[in-house]
Amino acid sequence: MPGGGPEMDDYMETLKDEEDALWENVECNRHMLSRYINPAKLTPYLRQCKVIDEQDEDEVLNAPMLPSKINRAGRLLDILHTKGQRGYVVFLESLEFYYPELYKLVTGKEPTRRFSTIVVEEGHEGLTHFLMNEVIKLQQQMKAKDLQRCELLARLRQLEDEKKQMTLTRVELLTFQERYYKMKEERDSYNDELVKVKDDNYNLAMRYAQLSEEKNMAVMRSRDLQLEIDQLKHRLNKMEEECKLERNQSLKLKNDIENRPKKEQVLELERENEMLKTKNQELQSIIQAGKRSLPDSDKAILDILEHDRKEALEDRQELVNRIYNLQEEARQAEELRDKYLEEKEDLELKCSTLGKDCEMYKHRMNTVMLQLEEVERERDQAFHSRDEAQTQYSQCLIEKDKYRKQIRELEEKNDEMRIEMVRREACIVNLESKLRRLSKDSNNLDQSLPRNLPVTIISQDFGDASPRTNGQEADDSSTSEESPEDSKYFLPYHPPQRRMNLKGIQLQRAKS
């Protein structure tokens, strides 16, 4: 015994090295194993092979420090690593049964499904019991997946119906949107047309105001020219009257000059006056001389005659003075006559000038009245044309509004008919989907599995289990394997941990 101590140590070291070499393959693929292994699927088989106990299973599945599946799978690998070579062998058998691809990844061999460990530990009855539990578990999982698949199909059909409904609603909204954009385009076109009409109206108003201003300026210029013409006519008439007055005065002077006595007659009258003065002096001298030589009687007679002569001279002087006064009065009367005649001529000139001015103003008033009548006639014609244009424009607008209203009513009726057609199509689609759903539900009910399987069917299934373990590994792997896509769409199922009653199965096998 003492001599065998070193050999035992060498043997233990060799086993430990082999164990480390075995687990080295697992550690190399630890990331892939932790990512894809579900500990809840492996722990029943590991407990059946007595590699882990209930406490280890509870620690792996329910520990609060292991929230994710990767953490739980890593903890399970750590626990199996502590179990040595047996933990490695049982772990590979569980991978061979549940995850053939991972088994091939770790060992590089094809899975054979021999279950040597569980046969050694529990015997064939334990293997049968384990396989029966796994089959029931798989059936329950398949039923749950079928239910989930039916629910998802129903949800899918519902979503398809909602999608069709949303599509129809979208078509309806597109119809309304198209109608909205069309009405918006019509409104924009009408606004552009309105702005264009306003611009045209403004341009016409500006043109009309400009023409009116030009016409008023032309009328004012015409009036100024007419006033200048009238003033020139007035000056012409005044000059004609002055010329006529000057002509009359010149004719009067000419007549006075023609009626003036001649120079010879004046000289002859002056000679006669001198001769008479000479004779008068001679007679006076004779009379003076006679007075001195005459007697007293003759002197008395001469005195009487002288007195008579003096009286006659006085009378004559009075007559001469009277004649002079009369001549002066006649001259003054002639001057007054000439003055009055001049005033008369001036008044006649003024009267004729005023008459011509009156005629001029009368003509001017007639011209202004004619212009006013023409302006009123043009204004009435413009008003009439404007009223006709406004009436025609309003009539066109009324007809346009009428046609637009008819078009809008027809478009609304068309839209309502399209919407009604879309709604009826939606109703038809809904009815078809309901009919299809009812038909599929009836087919699913016919094809669904019963909840409680008979014992004979279970025994028959387990009677055929042994050949399947040898020759149909691919079928078992397809039913027991969970793909990543299934984990996305289906909830994980945790079967209840219970042991099955095998009395009925044993009785059935005894009868057979």
Score class of each variant (00 low, 15 high):
Leu77Asn: 10
Leu66Trp: 03
Lys83Arg: 11
Gln48Asn: 10
Arg75Ala: 06
Thr82Leu: 09
Ala63Gly: 09
Cys28Trp: 05
Thr128Lys: 02
Ala63His: 15
Glu7Ile: 08
Glu134Val: 13
Asn25His: 03
Glu96Asn: 03
Ile70Leu: 06
Tyr98Arg: 04
Ser116Gln: 02
Pro39Ser: 04
Glu125Phe: 12
Ile118Asp: 15
Asn25Arg: 07
Leu66Glu: 03
Val119Gly: 14
Met142Phe: 14
Phe130Arg: 15
Gly108Val: 06
Leu102Arg: 00
Phe130Ala: 15
Lys104Met: 10
Pro64Met: 13
Val60Arg: 05
Leu77Gly: 05
Thr82Asp: 08
Gly123Ser: 15
Leu127Cys: 11
Lys145Asp: 07
Asp9Asn: 09
Leu127Thr: 14
Ala21Tyr: 00
Ser116Lys: 09
Leu138Val: 15
His81Leu: 05
Ala40Pro: 06
Cys28Asn: 06
Phe91Leu: 12
Ser68Arg: 02
Val51Glu: 07
Glu27Phe: 10
Ser34Lys: 02
Cys49Ala: 13
Val51Lys: 10
Tyr103Leu: 10
Lys69Tyr: 03
Asn133Ala: 05
Glu110Asn: 13
Pro6Gly: 12
Ile79Asn: 03
Pro44Cys: 06
Lys143Ser: 11
Phe130Glu: 13
Leu102Ile: 07
Leu33Asn: 01
Ile70Cys: 12
Phe91Gln: 00
Leu42Met: 11
Asp9Trp: 12
Pro111Lys: 09
Leu127Pro: 07
Val60Gly: 00
Lys83Ala: 10
Arg75Leu: 05
Thr43Glu: 04
Glu54Val: 11
Gln48Glu: 12
Leu80Gln: 04
Ala63Gln: 05
Gln139Pro: 04
Glu19Pro: 09
Lys50Phe: 12
Tyr11Gln: 11
Lys41Phe: 05
Lys41Glu: 06
Tyr36Phe: 09
Val51Tyr: 07
Lys137Ser: 09
Gln48His: 08
Ser68Ile: 04
Asp20Tyr: 06
Asp56Arg: 06
Gly5Gln: 14
Pro64Ser: 08
Leu46Val: 07
Thr117Asn: 15
Gln139Gly: 14
Gln55Ser: 10
Asp78Ser: 02
Ser94Asn: 01
Pro39Ile: 01
His81Pro: 03
Ser68His: 03
Pro39Leu: 01
Arg47Gln: 06
Gln140Arg: 11
Leu66Ile: 06
Pro44Arg: 02
Leu102Glu: 14
Gly84His: 03
Asp20Val: 11
Lys137Thr: 14
Gly84Ile: 00
Lys104Arg: 00
Lys143Tyr: 07
Arg72Trp: 03
Glu18His: 07
Asn133Asp: 01
Pro100Ala: 14
Glu27Val: 00
Glu57Ile: 06
Ala21Phe: 04
Thr14Cys: 05
Asn62Ile: 05
Pro44Val: 03
Glu13Phe: 07
Ile79Pro: 03
Glu134Ser: 13
Asn25Gly: 07
Lys137Gln: 10
Pro44Phe: 02
Asp20Asn: 13
Pro111Gly: 00
Arg86Phe: 00
Cys28Tyr: 04
Lys145Gly: 12
Arg47Ala: 08
Glu110Asp: 04
Met32Trp: 01
Lys143Ala: 10
Asp146Pro: 08
Arg35Ile: 06
Ile37Phe: 04
Asn133Trp: 14
Ile37Tyr: 03
Thr112Ala: 13
Arg30Ser: 00
Gln140His: 09
Arg30Asp: 01
Ser68Phe: 04
Met32Val: 07
Arg30Ile: 02
Tyr88Val: 07
Ala21Arg: 12
Ala63Thr: 05
Leu33His: 01
Glu27Leu: 04
Ser94Glu: 09
Ile52Asp: 08
Lys145Leu: 11
Ile52Asn: 08
Asp9Lys: 10
Arg47Tyr: 05
Lys83Gln: 08
Trp23Ile: 03
Ala21Trp: 02
Gln48Ser: 11
Ile79Trp: 07
Glu18Asn: 14
Arg75Asn: 05
Gly123Asn: 15
Pro39Phe: 01
Asp146His: 08
Ala40Val: 01
Leu127Val: 14
Asp78His: 01
Glu59Arg: 14
Trp23Glu: 00
Gln48Gly: 10
Gln139Ile: 15
Thr82Phe: 04
Asp10Glu: 14
Tyr45His: 10
Glu18Gln: 09
Lys145Tyr: 11
Ala40Trp: 03
Asn133Lys: 13
Pro44Asn: 05
Met142Gly: 09
Val26Cys: 00
Leu66Asp: 00
Leu76Ile: 02
Lys109Ser: 07
Thr43Met: 08
Gly4Cys: 11
Glu110Val: 03
Ala21Glu: 09
Leu33Ser: 01
Phe130Gly: 14
Asn29Gln: 08
Thr43Phe: 05
Glu54Asn: 09
Val90Ala: 11
Asp53Ala: 10
Thr43Ser: 03
Val135Lys: 13
Ser116Met: 02
Glu54Tyr: 11
Cys28Ala: 09
Cys49Met: 13
His81Phe: 05
Glu54Asp: 10
Glu54Ile: 10
Pro67Arg: 11
Ala21Asp: 06
Glu121Leu: 04
Met12Pro: 11
Tyr103Ala: 05
Gly5Asn: 12
Met65Arg: 07
Asp9Thr: 11
Leu80Ala: 03
Gly126Pro: 13
Lys16Ala: 10
Leu92Val: 15
Asp9His: 13
Phe97Ile: 05
Gly123Leu: 15
Leu46Asp: 07
Asn29Arg: 03
Asp17Thr: 14
Val90Tyr: 15
Lys83Thr: 10
Leu42Val: 12
Asp9Val: 11
His124Gly: 15
Ile79Cys: 03
Thr107Ser: 03
Thr128Leu: 15
Leu127Asn: 14
Ala40Ile: 02
Glu134Pro: 06
Gln85Phe: 07
Ile70Trp: 08
Leu92Asp: 15
Glu57Gly: 02
Lys50Arg: 10
Thr112Tyr: 14
Ile79Lys: 01
Ala63Lys: 14
Leu95Pro: 04
Glu54Pro: 08
Gln140Phe: 05
Phe97Ser: 03
Thr14Asp: 14
Thr128Val: 05
Gln141Leu: 14
Ile118Asn: 13
Val106Gln: 05
Val26Leu: 03
Met32Glu: 13
Tyr98Phe: 10
Asp58Met: 12
Glu101Tyr: 00
Asp56Trp: 01
Ala40Glu: 03
Ser68Asn: 03
Leu76His: 03
Asn62Pro: 08
Val60Ile: 14
Gly4Ala: 12
Gly5Ser: 11
Cys28Met: 01
Glu24Gly: 06
Val119Cys: 15
Leu33Asp: 00
Thr128Cys: 06
Leu95Arg: 01
Arg75Ser: 01
Ala21Lys: 10
Pro67His: 09
Gly87Val: 03
Lys69Trp: 04
Glu13Tyr: 13
Gly5Thr: 09
Gly84Leu: 04
Arg72Met: 02
Gly126Asn: 15
Asp10Met: 13
Gln48Met: 06
Glu24Ser: 01
Gln139Ser: 14
Ala73Lys: 01
Asn133Thr: 12
Gln48Trp: 07
Met32Thr: 08
Ala21Ser: 13
Ala63Val: 00
Gly5Met: 14
Ser116Pro: 15
Lys41Trp: 08
Asn71Trp: 02
